[in-house]
Design a binder for these strands. Structure first.
Lengths: 348, 348
DNA sequence: CTGAAAGCGCTTACAG
DNA sequence: CTGAAAGCGCTTACAG
């Protein structure tokens, strides 16, 4: 009778010893075969592979990494604001693709802008001995990474700088992109441009607000505090803030500094039937931007480019590059779709 | 002079031995302290914690799991169609939250509907000795998981059944949901309802098409092959297929069986200015569905519910539950927003 | 080219 | 309550 496995019956995993015994070789030979060491005699390779196949042997990579010089686990950590955020998840995919091509797996986690969670998750990743970490940080003090870097863990920051600047940073040109977005509204005849943004403590919000101010200053327009709203974190907060702002002040255009905010603003503009009157440019692209009427003009970032670049830098660091930390600024580009180019109503 | 760390200088990580030596205890005591064993004398706990703090000691969890009974790594794998797909990424977040609350980390990967990639990534996860795997499968033969289950790895499937049914499955009520969606179009006076869907080899596409047929049959409407398009995988393919279908046939309504397809169809309806004439109901919610005019009526699934339920089942299995595999069907719900309820034009 | 011994950083099993 | 020995499944360093 065949040794048929009984479902549910627990069976121990075979180890290198089992394979070695069945193949009639030493375990070191099994190790060589599974690590593709070329100097093993062909007939031994065959015997080992046959035995392994028969036993259903699979090497234990975590055990392997324990003794390996450098202790590399071939795993990297990726800490995002939220893995389900469209922007974050595109970064994630780019990092995954880059890593997978190099036989490295990605442990991803969401920080939700929580300082403590950043520390806690970083620590957890360290305890698993990841080889490197790509992080979209939520805290503003990163001195804790120094000890990890000395222990051999590489870091690359995304979107927001580590403080102090202890590791590479990959960012979009937030300030320049925001300036060009607002300039676009001004070029289209708008004069009372409102700003809706995230908490100013958030680096990107800060930079984009600075770009907003740059554009106004260059054109010689005074900034009007009643047209500015900070501290918006969700689409629904943005929706409410937009309604309040559109009711209390009279902007003729809105610059929304982030995709969730753009979505909230859009909802309000449509509800209040102002979508053909008040111009809108958003920072960061949004899904369906093409389908809404008018289409949403945005200053787009390239999450894929950011993820790929961050992964490239991380692997370079993991390979031993010890040059000083640098900042990599990626360009943004304007996608014109209609909402930013509405005809200005004739003056009364 | 303080022993200031020199940046860039590589420094070995302290181990339990180092902590034990500094604290003047055995390594087993250090182990007990870091595992919160309550029977350690308070002063020893203090000495160990102080020494660990001073050395910057962090336990090596991968080493710990090696000897631990059961060899648990406190890591699970999550294989999705694409981590950057809005639906997949919401499932991911739900799984992450459930796992994190239990001190378990998630290794996520994208399968892109590729059979080989499923095998390959599953194998990679196994080689890292994950405790369990949640998978949205792309292949149609899952006998390979039996050996892994016997070795103690738990599996839960999402969206599509394993074949044969070797593990738990969590799915939306695809067939029933599709039937109700199409019924909704029929209830609103539509009679020539078109179907746009993914490859029929994909389980969900199959089920949703069956639901489409159910609704027509119940109402006594003959199915018309010229109104059906299968094999659509991307938004742009759907966009083109919709244009071709709307040109060649004359549907008065469209049921799009998936979010990317809904997006493609929407683009075409708007471009051809048919969005107020041809009714639309999509399966699965899409972003900005509220903002488009008319709003997009959808039969929504709950990715968060699916992720949470899958995680709950996986942890139950990992805790030792050996009951027979079961199918968990989660309800879908109709979100009425306008596109499915357009007034029917008066007959000529 | 091959393999026996030692060791990676922990936990288990056991003795005191 | 505490610790010395053995072992998890591999790789390193070394001898033949």
């Amino acid at each position: 009778m065949v040794n048929q496995a009984h479902p549910g019956e627990r069976r121990d995993r075979p180890t290198m010893h089992d394979v070695a015994a069945l193949a009639g070789v030493g375990i070191k030979t099994v190790s060589r075969v599974f690590n593709d060491v070329p100097t093993v005699a062909p007939d031994l390779v065959t015997r080992v592979r046959t035995a392994a196949e028969k036993l259903g042997y699979r090497p234990n990579l975590t055990a392997a990494s324990l003794r390996r010089s450098g202790g590399r686990t071939n795993t990297i950590g990726l800490l995002l604001e939220d893995v389900s955020n469209p922007y974050s998840s595109l970064v994630h995919r780019a990092v995954e693709d880059y890593a997978r091509a190099r036989n490295v797996l990605v442990l991803a986690g969401s920080l939700d802008e929580d300082h403590d969670r950043e520390r806690e998750l970083t620590r957890t990743l360290i305890d698993r001995r990841v080889d490197g970490i790509i992080i979209m940080p939520s805290s503003d003090d990163h001195r804790y990474i120094v000890a990890e870097q000395q222990a051999g863990v590489s870091f690359v920051f995304i979107d927001r700088p580590p403080s102090p600047l202890l590791a590479d940073l990959v960012v979009s040109d937030n300030r320049g992109g925001a300036r060009r977005a607002v300039q676009h509204l001004l070029d289209n005849g708008r004069r009372a441009v409102a700003f809706l943004g995230d908490d100013l403590g958030v680096y990107t919000a800060q930079q984009r607000f600075a770009g907003f101010c740059d554009a106004l200053a260059e054109t010689g327009i005074d900034s009007r505090p009643e047209l500015v709203r900070h501290g918006l974190r969700t689409a629904s907060q943005a929706r409410d803030a937009a309604r309040e702002l559109l009711t209390s002040a009279a902007p003729d255009a809105i610059f929304s500094s982030q995709n969730l905010i753009t979505i909230g603003v859009l909802e309000t503009l449509h509800r209040m039937d102002l979508h053909r009157t008040v111009a809108l440019v958003g920072f960061d692209d949004v899904p369906l931007a093409d389908v809404v009427d008018p289409g949403v003009t945005v200053m787009a970032q390239g999450p894929t480019g950011i993820g790929t670049e961050a992964a490239r830098l991380l692997f370079k660091r993991m390979a031993g590059d010890a040059s000083p930390p640098a900042v990599y600024t990626l360009p943004t580009h304007l996608i014109v779709r209609g909402s930013g180019e509405l005809p200005v109503p004739a003056a009364p």
